[in-house]
Amino acid sequence: MSSSQRTIVSLHAHPDDEASKGAATIAKYVAQGVRAVLVTATGGEEGEFLNPAFKGRDPRELPELRMKELARSAEIIGYHEVELLGFRDSGMPGSEANNQPACFAAVPLEDAVRPVVAILRRERPQVMISYGQRQDSYPHPDHLRVYEVAKAARDLANDPQFAPELGAVHRVEKWYWSLWVRSRFEALGRAMAAKGIELPFRMAERAGDDDLVTTRIDVSATIGVGRAALLAHETQVDPSSPFWFALSPEELASIYPYEEYHLVDAPIGYQETDLFQGIGG
């Protein structure tokens, strides 16, 4: 990639994470000419058929179906490229899948980091987005590992002593964590309550990352993209779900038209409205 090409690399754990976390942000920047690369760590093999329309389907079909859904979702969002790391889904905390030696959370960290370093050195992004260090409310092993891999890969991509065969060193200028912002879900909860819909308990009670917010992106023009991308994962969502789909994109934009992030190493009190703020070119 040319050093003048504005580029974002997003790291996610499973197919459908890219749809439920930051899809509108990526769509907004793609519309501005930014190159967007999606890195998906696992195939989501431990998922289930969550859409009643798939009742009775053979579970062995799921991995192939999820790859097709991922491709559709990425196209809807606008990603220019999808990189599959090819690790196995680790399953929920405490599940038998955690013991699979090939699962993402169990492989040696360097084995998971090397392909991400290669991607960063090839794509040369100014911005990288991953999950953050604080994951107490949803400690999925694969989400925790995404944070560990992102942290290590960012450092090692700029280390000339590490794996020179993976390409010329590159410094990712800005590393962001996607956040679970409680004020957003409280606003959505009030709008849903007005329609007689209650938030699921685990979401209603989940602690927020509001104190970590450094970056608030106005996604009012692209907020419907996440909905469309999520619907592309048809094995994983019930299209009649009141939680995901009760509010129209227009309603969402009027209630809370933002997606929020934490800029790693930002000074205390730092606030911005653009992922590329402070980056030249």
Rank of each mutant, 00 (worst) to 15 (best):
M1F: 11
M1D: 13
S2A: 15
S3K: 09
I8N: 04
S10G: 03
H14G: 00
D17F: 07
A19H: 04
S20D: 03
G22N: 05
A24E: 07
T25K: 04
A27N: 04
A27H: 01
Y29L: 01
V30R: 08
A36P: 01
A36R: 02
V37A: 10
L38G: 03
L38C: 06
V39P: 02
A41P: 01
G43R: 04
G43M: 03
G44D: 01
G47S: 15
G47T: 04
G47V: 00
E48K: 14
L50Q: 14
N51W: 13
P52K: 07
A53Q: 13
A53F: 12
D58I: 09
E61F: 06
E61N: 05
P63Q: 11
E64F: 11
M67R: 10
L70M: 10
A71T: 15
S73I: 03
S73L: 06
I77H: 02
Y79I: 04
E81W: 01
L85R: 01
F87A: 02
F87W: 06
R88T: 13
P93A: 09
N98T: 05
N99E: 15
A102D: 15
A102W: 06
C103L: 05
L109K: 06
E110T: 12
A112H: 02
V113R: 06
R114Q: 12
P115E: 14
P115M: 07
V117Q: 09
I119R: 08
I119L: 15
L120G: 14
R121Q: 11
R121A: 11
E123L: 05
R124V: 09
P125S: 15
V127G: 00
Y131V: 00
Y138C: 03
Y138S: 09
P139Q: 11
H140L: 09
D142A: 04
H143R: 01
R145I: 03
Y147D: 06
Y147G: 00
K151M: 12
K151Y: 14
A152W: 02
L156R: 07
N158F: 15
Q161A: 12
F162L: 04
E165G: 08
L166W: 06
L166H: 04
H170N: 11
R171N: 12
V172N: 07
W177D: 05
S178Q: 08
L179P: 01
W180Q: 02
R182E: 12
F185H: 13
F185E: 04
A187H: 11
L188H: 08
G189D: 10
M192P: 03
A193C: 04
A194I: 06
G196K: 02
G196W: 07
G196P: 03
I197C: 07
E198G: 05
F201C: 00
M203Q: 07
E205R: 07
R216P: 00
S220M: 08
A221I: 03
I223S: 10
G226E: 13
A228C: 05
E234N: 13
Q236E: 14
V237I: 15
D238W: 13
D238G: 09
P239H: 11
P239A: 11
S241Q: 09
S241P: 04
F243K: 03
W244Q: 10
F245M: 08
A246L: 08
L247M: 10
A253C: 09
P257T: 14
Y258L: 04
L263G: 14
D265G: 12
P267V: 10
P267D: 14
I268V: 14
I268W: 10
Y270S: 07
E272L: 04
T273P: 00
G280V: 12
